[in-house]
């Protein structure tokens, strides 16, 4: 799923400093699962912002709402009757949410309360790690189910590089060298020879590098 981190309070307060009444919208999708933008987090942020603004002597009114998904026009419609009652709307969804809201309600101002980071999953309660870079041409089967595009700092197709030491990436001690893991796995399975295949240079056209992307299910388009 999409993992996001909440922006700092300072940054959020700065975004909304000129507003007296805002709507804080959460999302029951990815940001709920990674505990950053669901109904609970909406409640906590609303309370925190109200307290901070009261302290400044510049109180703010904050209404709360959490949509099933902000990336779905059906749910975005649910604030049609109320969206214009606010000076601005602060969204806790990933980057997709405020954009869908913004397109549906062009006369309103939308602000992101979170920084969207990566596609990943929970490795432990409270810890999420990146697993996929959305490169558009999945080849994890070449690497025994591990993705070097997302998990190698250099996205090497033939690793490891000289910076791999003790299973760690040269960029930081807490970053796993995925190539060390890939090589170990291949060795355990007696298939190290697989890694001697030289792959064709990566075609980045299917990644974001090839420009903004679209996915169409012909059979569903009316």
């Amino acid at each position: 799923m999409i993992i996001a981190d909440r922006k700092s309070l300072e940054e959020i307060l700065d975004m909304i400093k000129d507003f007296k009444k805002i709507l804080l919208v959460g999302c029951k999708g990815c940001v709920t699962v990674c505990n950053v933008g669901g109904a609970k987090e909406v409640g906590v942020l609303a309370a925190t912002l109200k307290i901070a603004r009261k302290k400044e002597g510049n109180p703010i009114e904050i209404d709360e709402k959490t949509l099933e998904r902000q990336c779905d026009p059906e749910y975005v419609e649910q604030i049609r009757d109320i969206f214009d009652q606010y000076d601005a709307i602060l969204s806790m969804a990933c980057g997709v949410g405020p954009q869908f809201l913004s397109e549906a309600y062009p006369s309103q101002k939308f602000f992101p309360a979170v920084d969207t980071k990566f596609f990943g999953g929970a490795v432990q309660h409270g810890i999420w790690e990146e697993r996929c870079a959305g490169c558009g041409t999945c080849v994890i089967h070449h690497y025994d189910g591990l993705c070097p595009i997302a998990r190698c700092s250099k996205s090497l197709q033939h690793g490891p590089c000289g910076g791999s030491a003790d299973g760690k990436c040269e960029i930081a001690k807490d970053v796993e060298c995925i190539w060390d893991t890939i090589v170990k796995k291949k060795m355990e399975q007696g298939r190290l020879e697989d890694l001697r295949i030289i792959r064709a240079p990566k075609d980045w056209q299917t990644a974001r590098d090839g420009g903004p992307r679209k996915s169409i299910r012909e059979e569903l388009v009316q």
């Binding site: 240079p201 990566k202 075609d203 980045w204 056209q205 990644a207 590098d209 090839g210 420009g211």
Partner: peptide
């Protein structure tokens, strides 16, 4: 210009 216009389409701009 975008790589798609040239002769190395697959490159990462």
């Amino acid at each position: 210009e975008d790589p798609s216009l040239g002769d190395h389409h697959q490159t990462k701009a």
